[in-house]
Nucleic acid binder design. Sequence first.
DNA 1: TCCTTTATGCGAAAGATTTGCAAATACAAA
DNA 2: TTTGTATTTGCAAATCTTTCGCATAAAGGA
Lengths: 139, 139
Amino acid sequence: MNKEELKNLIKEAGLRVTIHRLAVLLAVVKAKQPVTVYELTEILRKKENIDQATIYRNLSSLHIAGILRRLDFNHGHAHYELETGTASHQIVCGKCETIEKIEGVSIDNAIQKMIQKSKKFKNTTTHSIEVYGVCKACV
Amino acid sequence: MNKEELKNLIKEAGLRVTIHRLAVLLAVVKAKQPVTVYELTEILRKKENIDQATIYRNLSSLHIAGILRRLDFNHGHAHYELETGTASHQIVCGKCETIEKIEGVSIDNAIQKMIQKSKKFKNTTTHSIEVYGVCKACV
DNA sequence: TCCTTTATGCGAAAGATTTGCAAATACAAA
DNA sequence: TTTGTATTTGCAAATCTTTCGCATAAAGGA
């Protein structure tokens, strides 16, 4: 995903392409792991002169637009990553804040079964799995 | 799970069986869905004269003891339910705060695959799946 | 019953996130 | 290119969730 593609994502969502919005999106995309607002602030406050509220507002608009995915690992604050279409699976350490993203494991049939059993939902958009454990460093 | 069994759970965890702690645990167990602190406060403030901080502290101690499971659905606050040993799977509405618990769908082989792929974790304790969609009432 | 540890109430504090409002900016239309 | 309007931003304050300090109260083993 290069800058132009990200710009298009924003445009197609009906949002305006501002320097700050693009910077926030770029920073999320560049991160190897789902990022927190705190981390984004660290990254962006240096280069851009960007307010905390602006970061929050952009994360929110990009999330509502379906461009970013918002994740929660019971750390008391949200994490964001690019909404790729494929679901997000991670293992989370219960002692430290380590997260490991695991790719290539599908649970699509389980999701199908869940929808069949559901009374309130006909279909679903995305899902996330948080597997909890204690990482090797904390054992 | 009756009152006596819950008392024993607390005792076995090395915690003291207080009126408030038991009331919090009972209220969580009685709820049909994972409850929030707000809901617990509503329920408990009427009967017991129980402080907000006490609810938080008891939820925390029961969670650390492995009696309660703490869940997050990106609603900005935690939900709690009894830690049953079997994992917790739910579908969450992205528009309203509806949650539907789905039982009887296992993803244990997917979890196994995830551990095999993991570099940072050797094994895991629990997991949760949040499947997001828009519920029939919100469509 | 006594003693020590743990739990509670209360108020204050911390941390994450949202909001109101005026000024600045994006971008479509002229 | 200029203009006009809706959107975005900065700033400060507010809100919401959760935690903490400390003195008092209660639990439960000796």
